[in-house]
């Protein structure tokens, strides 16, 4: 064929001598064009006999366009989080909210359809920022800040969830406010877990940060348990708690975070 491999491997960019570089470049261009012509000729001859081969080749030949090499849309982040929350809670449904209905109306719809809870995920800067948990039909409503979300698939050695109803572990919810918040979480899950699934969902409160984890466990002995994280993991921090349904205008706040309440490092509310 007369194509020296050496010439194709060497990149003209790497040669500092301009005259040499240009020479090599033009040589490579000619070789490339020649190559192209020859393959075309060959394909034409080959495909003259069998049109199926041509059809197959054309089907496989999908050029890269701006549309099909589109960058990943990060707005999916909030929705992804909502979907993972949906997967954690048994019998949960995910509905894209849209802008058509106000939250008050959505709450009405949910009450009419006898849903027990409504979770609203809000998103800022393409990240999930807040989670509002509304217990239907009479409240309470709690708003949490979401931070440090890690998808289950990004956790090393993660397991895959099963459809079993998980056990709920609530740790350290000791104050009165803590009890109500704990109840809010506990009421999201069915009261009777399916133990054969060996899945446990944990809400661990430490210094007012509520850490969410989901594990599969295995009792190794009377003293040891093996845990495999299923994920996702994220941290919640309570912003406010309302007695009734979500109502920012006239709702009664049972507790609301204010910066001036942080009087010392050892003052915690949950």
């Amino acid at each position: 064929m007369g194509i020296s491999k050496k010439n194709l491997v060497v990149e003209p960019n790497s040669i500092k001598n301009k005259a040499k570089r240009l020479q090599l470049y033009s040589q490579q261009r000619i070789e490339k064009a020649k190559n192209k012509r020859e393959t075309r000729k060959r394909l034409k001859l080959e495909e003259k006999d069998c049109p199926e081969a041509k059809k197959e080749r054309l089907e496989k030949n999908v050029p890269n366009t701006q549309e099909n090499t589109r960058e990943f849309d990060e707005t999916i982040a909030g929705i992804e989080f909502a979907l993972s929350v949906k997967n954690i809670i048994p019998d949960a449904e995910f509905i894209k909210r849209g802008s058509q209905y106000s939250l008050e109306k959505i709450m009405d719809f949910c009450v009419n359809r006898e849903y027990t809870d409504l979770l609203v995920v809000s998103e800022d800067h393409r990240e999930p920022t807040y989670l509002t948990v509304i217990h239907l039909p009479n409240g309470p409503t709690a708003k949490f800040r979401i931070t440090r979300v890690k998808d289950g698939k990004k956790i090393e050695g993660h397991g895959n969830p099963t459809a079993h109803k998980p056990e709920v572990i609530l740790n350290n919810f000791s104050t009165r406010l803590g009890h109500t918040v704990g109840k809010v979480f506990a009421s999201l899950f069915p009261q009777l877990p399916e133990f054969e699934g060996r899945q446990a969902v944990t809400f661990h409160n430490q210094r007012d940060f509520i850490f969410f984890r989901r594990h599969r466990y295995e009792f190794v002995s009377g003293k040891r348990v093996n845990l495999q994280e299923i994920g996702p993991r994220f941290t919640l921090r309570l912003q406010w708690l309302q007695k009734g349904l979500y109502d920012l205008k006239s709702g009664e706040y049972e507790w609301i975070f204010k910066p001036e309440m942080e009087t010392s490092r050892r003052k915690f509310f949950l």
């Binding site: 740790n171 446990a200 944990t202 661990h204 430490q206 210094r207 466990y217 348990v225």
Partner: peptide, 17 residues
């Protein structure tokens, strides 16, 4: 820091046992 102090795996194990 709170996450470090929480020692989540240990507390979950204890609770399960």
């Amino acid at each position: 820091r709170a996450e470090q102090v929480a020692r989540l795996d240990k507390s979950i194990e204890k609770e399960l046992l």
